[in-house]
Each structure stands twice: as C-alpha cells, then as structure tokens.
C-alpha cells in the first residue's frame, strides 16, 4: 500500500506579495483522517491547493510515495456542471481519463448509490437540494477511488442537520474505502468529530502551531459529539486557539 504523504517545509507567497503559508512540515500517514484547522486566512486552502498541484510552492515541496497518488477534491461549493445530470457530473473524472461512457455511467450510478442518491442519477443540479448537491460532489470525488481525498470546508455552507448527516456519511465512506482524508475546516467541533489528528494553523503567513491527536475510536456515533472525550479534545484545541488568536 501507499506510504505517507510528506509536506516538507512548504511555503507559498503569492505574486501580489501575500504570504499565505510559511514553512509547514507534516507527515500525513496513509489512510489517516487529518484536519487542518484555523481561522480564515491561515493558508489552509493554500495547503490543499499545493497538495493538489493546483499551485506551485514558493519553497519546500510535497513528497509523494513513489508516484503521485490519485486525488479526489471536494470544494466548499458543490462545483457541479449545471448543464449535466448528477450521473454525468459524477462520471466526469472517469470520462476525462478515457473510460467508455456506458462503463463510466455504471460506476457513477454506483457511486451515487453510496451517497444515498440512487434515484437521482438523471436529475440536474438545480433540481437537487444543497445537501444533495454536496453528496453528488462527494460521489464525484470518490468515483475514481482516490488514494487521497482533499476537502476544502466542504460543509461550511450547509445547515447544522445536513452537515451532521454528511459528516457521518463521510466517516462511513472513509472506513469503507480507506483513503487518506485531508479536511480543511474552521469548525473546532467538526474537526474533532471527524479526525484522528488535527493540525492547527495560525498567523499570516500560516504556520503550524499545534498537532493534536484525537484517540477516540471509530466508528464514531453522533453520541460522541456530547461525550466527555469529545469535550476534552475540543477544550485542548480551544486553549491552543486562544493562545495564538492572531490571524
């Protein structure tokens, strides 16, 4: 299986002079679920874009084991093609890779089933609710069975109920597929609920200020949200954030 993903002294300064990220090093174990937590403007999204290869780091590098692993990405917006059905949207990564349409559609429908959208293969994005669109986006990110799933505050725009449900769906899929999850969020509670490990970023340029393990076992049930263990981890994080709240 794949080895770890290493971020080696990553730094990014944009051409306009904004230093988004300064000197971030971290090893992300294969198959781990890691959250990047911090207030907006801490370079969290920049880290994801650097891992995805959508930006080049100014300094440092992203080290992949042997070859670059396959990636799935979920953006803050569902980012669907408005003119294409749910199945067409999900099939996109497969079709771009050259898979035949019928086969791609079959796998897309399978992926939609996994996110409880079995009956919506032919629905257009505008016919779906916000939560359902985000599910389509999740199905698309996972359809090609990526080694690494990058998530950029994917549920920030959703209501509390939908968000909780999608958190549970995400953990279920992670347990089934065993991808490495890198989850960017500014919600302490979402980070604690989902992750094995939480990297707290702060400052401008962003840098790593704490690396907190969350030993709570999986599967995590909704009851975990109100448990003493959950509170203890959340408390640790809030303490760190209070110390460094400068962003």
């Amino acid at each position: 299986m794949s080895r770890d993903l290493r971020l080696d002294r990553l730094a990014k300064t944009f051409p306009n002079g904004t230093a988004a990220l300064g000197d971030l090093s971290a090893d992300i174990a294969a198959g781990a679920f890691v959250s990047l937590l911090g207030p907006s403007g801490c370079g969290k999204s920049t880290v994801l874009r650097l891992i995805a290869g959508l930006e080049e780091p100014t300094r440092g590098r992203v080290e992949w084991p042997q070859t670059r692993g396959s990636l799935g990405v979920i953006f803050q917006e569902p980012t669907l093609m408005a003119w294409a059905s749910a199945a067409k949207n999900v099939a996109l990564p497969l079709e771009l890779a050259g898979m035949a349409k019928t086969q791609a559609r079959e796998r897309a429908c399978g992926a939609l089933e996994k996110v409880d959208l079995a009956g919506f293969a032919d629905a257009l994005p505008r016919e779906l609710s916000g939560g359902m669109r985000m599910r389509v986006s999740i199905a698309r990110a996972l359809v090609a069975d990526p080694d690494v799933l990058l998530m950029d505050e994917p549920f920030a725009a959703l209501d509390e109920f939908t968000r909780g449900k999608l958190n549970d769906d995400l953990l279920r899929l992670w347990a089934e597929r065993g991808f490495t999850g890198v989850f960017v969020t500014h919600s302490v509670f979402e980070a604690v609920y989902l992750s094995q490990r939480i990297l707290i970023l702060s400052g401008r340029p962003g840098r790593l200020v704490a690396d907190i393990q969350n030993p709570a076992p999986y599967p995590r049930e909704p009851g975990y949200r109100t448990s003493a263990a959950f509170n203890a981890t959340a408390r640790d994080i809030l303490d760190v954030l209070e110390e460094v709240s400068t962003c």
């Binding site: 874009r49 290869g53 990405v73 771009l96």
Partner: peptide, 26 residues
C-alpha cells in the same frame, strides 16, 4: 467559467480540447 470547475478539470488532467468542449462551451 467557474474557477473551481476549471481547477477540477486541471486536477483530472483534462487537455484543452476536453476542457473546451465539456466545460467552456456549455
């Protein structure tokens, strides 16, 4: 074109022809 969708096409290594027909035209 939605910049996120453009990123998505880049991420999945779409060539110019694919990006043009599947994303830019629609």
């Amino acid at each position: 074109v939605d910049p996120n969708l453009r990123d998505l096409f880049r991420l999945y290594r779409a060539d110019f022809r694919q990006t043009f027909i599947r994303l830019m035209v629609p």
